[in-house]
Computed example of a mutant assay.
Amino acid sequence: MPVPKDEFDSLYPCDFYTPAELLDEDKLYTVYEIARLLQDLDPDEDIGQDVENVLLDWAIPWVMFHSDDLVVAEPRDDDEPGFYGVDT
């Protein structure tokens, strides 16, 4: 259900990094690592499954929106996620 804006103390611009600003052009990242980076966290930081699920809600649309600026690498193993990087 929609919530009135005045119920919040502060509102912020919805400004996200571009792939070139967020990712090292010589590396590939999982969507989980991208989720952490979008929150200015270390890509290897242990954040717990509940927090990770929330961050993925931000990261997956970001990857889709910036798909023209990204490359994708297939997982190396069946239990590994895919990897994304800057299209250079």
Rank of each mutant, 00 (worst) to 15 (best):
M1K: 15
V3Q: 06
P4A: 14
D6N: 14
E7R: 14
F8Y: 15
S10N: 11
S10P: 01
L11V: 15
Y12V: 06
P13A: 07
P13K: 04
C14N: 12
C14I: 02
D15R: 12
Y17G: 02
Y17Q: 10
Y17P: 02
T18C: 06
P19M: 06
A20D: 11
E21I: 09
E21C: 04
L23D: 01
D24V: 10
E25M: 11
E25C: 09
E25W: 05
K27W: 05
L28I: 11
L28E: 03
L28P: 04
L28Y: 12
Y29K: 01
Y29F: 15
T30I: 07
T30P: 04
Y32D: 02
Y32A: 12
Y32S: 11
E33C: 03
E33Q: 15
E33L: 02
E33M: 03
I34F: 02
A35F: 00
A35P: 05
R36H: 02
L38M: 05
L38R: 02
Q39N: 14
D40L: 06
L41F: 15
L41H: 09
D42Y: 07
P43C: 10
P43F: 03
P43G: 07
D44L: 08
E45S: 08
E45D: 08
E45L: 12
D46V: 15
D46H: 15
I47Q: 01
G48C: 07
G48W: 12
G48T: 08
G48I: 07
Q49G: 06
Q49K: 09
D50C: 04
D50F: 11
V51W: 00
E52Q: 15
E52S: 10
N53S: 14
N53C: 06
L56Y: 04
D57M: 11
W58N: 15
A59K: 00
A59E: 01
A59C: 11
I60F: 04
I60A: 06
P61R: 05
P61L: 10
W62F: 03
F65T: 10
S67D: 06
S67M: 09
D68S: 14
D69L: 07
D69M: 07
D69T: 03
L70C: 00
L70V: 06
V72Y: 10
A73K: 12
E74S: 13
P75I: 01
P75H: 00
P75V: 03
R76T: 11
D77N: 10
D77R: 12
D78N: 08
D78Q: 07
D79R: 01
D79E: 08
P81W: 02
P81I: 01
P81D: 05
G82I: 05
F83N: 01
Y84N: 00
Y84P: 00
Y84D: 01
G85D: 03
V86I: 11
V86E: 00
D87S: 12
D87H: 12
D87W: 05
D87V: 02
T88M: 11
